[in-house]
Structures are given as C-alpha cells and as structure tokens.
Design a protein around this nucleic acid. Structure first.
Lengths: 237, 237
DNA sequence: CGTGCGGTTGATCCGAGTCAAGCCAAGTGG
DNA sequence: CCACTTGGCTTGACTCGGATCAACCGCACG
C-alpha cells in the first residue's frame, strides 16, 4: 500500500536483461558492442531498506546504477547529525567516479536493486566510450544544478518555505493515485535531514499546512495536495 | 596592495597565447589539432570587478574558461537576497553547458579575463574530443563534491563554525605573504552571502576570533591565522 | 501484556536576524 | 583646505524562529 509497491518494481528490474545499465539516458547512447562490454562487467546486487551501499570516506572501489528503489546521499557530522545532500532514483549513477574515496554515503531508503561495476573497469570503459562519458557529464551537471538550488533553500528559506518547496517538488515528480494521494518516500527524520530542520519542526509545519487546508495527510507516508497555488505562494515567500 | 595585484595577473593572462583554454587540466589533454580548433572559436573578454558574465535564467549562449580573476556563482531570491553557490577561479569552466538556460549568475568579484566560446560550437567540439569531455566531467564531479560539503555547512553548522571553516579553507588555498597575511577576496556582504549569514554576524564572529587570539585582522581584507588548530577546533564543534 | 519505534504536541531557550547608530576612509565639490 | 557625502564595516539592543527537552500517543511485535 505505501510507496509504489517496491516488490513489483524489484521484480521488473530483476527480469530486465536487455539493458546492462538501468539508465535509459546512458544506455540509449551506447553502441551494441559497448552494451555487451558493460554487461560483462556488471553484477546485480539487492539491498533492503536501510542498508548502505557506500560510506563517506571509504575507498571507492565500485560504482553502480540504480535499477529499482530510492537512495539517500548523505554526509555526517562528528556529533552524529546527518545531512542529506541528495536523493538517487532508478536510472541514476551512484558511487564516486574518478576519485579514490567516496565523498558521501549512499543508503537505500526502500528495498533496491543495483547494477554494480568495479570502478576501475568502468572508468576504463568510459574512457573508450565517449557516449557514456557524455551521458555521465550531463547527469553530473544536472546534479550540480539541483545541488545549487538546494543550497539556496538551506541557506535562505524559512522552515515553512522549505517544507512547502519539498512538497511541491514531490508532487511534481510523482503520479498521484486514484484518490489523489502521493507517496512520501521519506520518514520524518529523513525529511528533517534533507531540509535541514528538526523532526519536530517538520511535523509541526506539515500539521500547519493540513490545518490551513493546503494539504491532507491521510497517513504519515501519504500526501494530498489540496491547494497547489496556495502552497506555491507559501514556498516563495 | 590588496589581493594579489590583479593588474599583473591580467597582463600575464592576456599575453598567454599558447593555450586556447586557460585551464591546464583541460588543455593538457588536448591533441594539438583540437587546441587549434578551440583557439579558432575563442574570443577574449575582460570584465571589471562587479560586472556580470551570465544571468540566472537567461539563455545560455556562451561558455568560458577563466584566465584571470575570481567569479562568484550566485542565485537570487524573489526578495533580493542572494546566495553564493560557489566561487570560480582561473582554470575553471563557467557557463551552462548542455542546457538552454543558465542555472546561476556569474559575476566577477575582481577584474577578470575570460576565454569565451559560443556554447553550441563548444559542445560540438566536446562531442568530438573525448579528452575535453573527460576533463569537464572530472571538474563537474569535483564541483559536485564541494557543493555537497557546502550544503552540510549551510544546513548544520553554527555561525562561528561556518566562519571558522571558511577561514581555514581560505588559509589552506592561499599562500601567505611575508608578514603571514592572507588576502580575503570577498567583501563582508559576499562573505555573508556565501556562508548564509547576515553581514553583521560575519563581522561579529570575525571580531570574536580576533579577540580570542585565533586570528588577526590587520585590515578588513587581510587575515593572519594565529592559532590554526584552535580555529580547526572551533570549526568542528 | 510490556516494549520500542515513529510521530505529535507543548514549554522553554538561545542563536542569529533585524533595526538602528555610529565609525572611518575615500571621494567630491565649493 | 574644509564641509559634506558615500560606502563598507562595526557595534549594540531587541526580537523571534526554530532547536531542544520532555511528555505522550498509537501501533507493531515479541
């Protein structure tokens, strides 16, 4: 019921044998010979929600593309507080390329399936496959752009603005079900870590929006946007 | 006196005719034929401190490499508040590649010299020059990594921690002069915009560090680190 | 049944933003 | 040469948003 039925997604991903890397954006540009080369390198790995694929500061020995599931990219402070620096969805490339150490941790927040490649081998392949490197560059630039907007949000927006902004982005990216409900793929804690807020503040602001009629929260992992324009107004100022 | 004498830098950059793009990291990997192709595309442009090279939201028609000077990358809020999302130094590539609109503004904060290329032509060249695209990818990944640490800072660190972190990074990147002084390339306002703090808070925290003996501020554009380890302790917690 | 976990709610506190003066050095014009 | 302005910076007083601390709720699970 909650989320988009991860089991089905996982089965679909596992049974897909046509494309060696899950990302259509990458795969579409590969000549057949390179697809085969990629396929020969890969290893499929499944993770349960909560399991970590890579640790910040650890040696970067493998990279992967996501076939199914959602990952959080995070950094930790010495005192244990965590900050999410991004999310990764099916099709995204994860892991540190062209660098010896991982610059952030990667943790599955739903059950997930990955195509894992040894980093060195993948880098060699990229070096001889301009289409692949181009796709990686385009993705990195898009990530960079997103990271910059996130910086603006973290540095300048108030708590309600941050929550409203997140809800709007989520709504834009998700297809609502028949009842107009959207799955919230994060716990309150993760939401706080993403928005740079305490868990209590997240909870309160969601409640405020519900009381003011902008949204409904049928359960704490679901969302219905009742007044998009109103929410957008809150997000902007 | 303040900064590293931008005039000299500019003259040096202007008289450099051997390398079509200022970035050694890019240029070193280019075969001679491609260097010539790049050179044919380029146009040299000089900007005075405060002039803007690209506006957030504007069509992306040109890209450039920095030969001399420092640029700020910034985003603006509707209410006029600004957030710096990064700095760009000589050798860095600026401007939006592979996208129709600029995702942030670029403003010279010192006098500067650029090698400007039409975006479309540069992209075509990149498409046929794997070494160039590889260099761009490596740079984008490094930028991304830096952006992520910046996110952590903006979301989680206290004002004194942010200021201390910045001072340490600056000290690490700069060569002090004979008197141990380091040039601060930003105004208080820009410092605030970078660290997500008000100008008053920046001023106060710098003063606090001076009074506590961690640093000295001979003038408001110069810095002497008196107690690096102590400053590092403040930055961490 | 307890127990633990995720979430909510309330009370309190403090850090940093805001507002308002004031300082100082560099113009600028009479 | 001096009065006046201007812009970047500092300092102080006050305010308030969001963190923190602490209960408490409801549900799943052993």
């Amino acid at each position: 019921m909650q989320l988009q039925s991860p089991r089905d997604d996982m089965d679909a991903a596992m049974s897909c044998n046509t494309c060696p890397v899950a990302d259509p954006a990458i795969c579409a540009h590969l000549p057949p010979s390179q697809r085969i080369a990629l396929a020969a390198l890969r290893r499929t790995e499944t993770l349960r929600a909560g399991e970590t694929f890579a640790w910040e500061g650890a040696d970067s020995v493998v990279v992967a593309t996501i076939r199914a599931g959602v990952f959080k990219r995070s950094l930790m402070l010495a005192d244990g507080r965590e900050q999410l620096v991004g999310l990764a969805f099916p099709g995204d490339m994860v892991g540190r390329l062209f660098g010896p150490v991982c610059d952030h941790s990667l943790t599955a927040i739903t059950d997930a399936v990955l195509c894992v490649f040894p980093r060195a081998a993948f880098e060699r392949l990229a070096g001889t496959t301009p289409e692949l490197e181009h796709a990686l560059l385009v993705q990195a630039l898009a990530d960079l752009s997103r990271a910059q907007r996130q910086m603006l949000m973290l540095a300048r927006l108030s708590a309600p603005q941050r929550v409203a902004t997140f809800l709007l982005e989520l709504a834009e990216r998700s297809r609502p079900d028949a009842a107009g409900r959207i799955a919230i793929p994060l716990s309150r804690q993760q939401l706080g870590d993403l928005l740079g807020l305490s868990i209590e503040t997240v909870s309160r602001k969601l409640r405020d929006f519900e009381r003011s009629g902008h949204i409904a929260l049928p359960d704490y992992r679901s969302l219905v946007v009742r007044d998009g324009p109103g929410l957008a107004a809150l997000a902007a100022a």
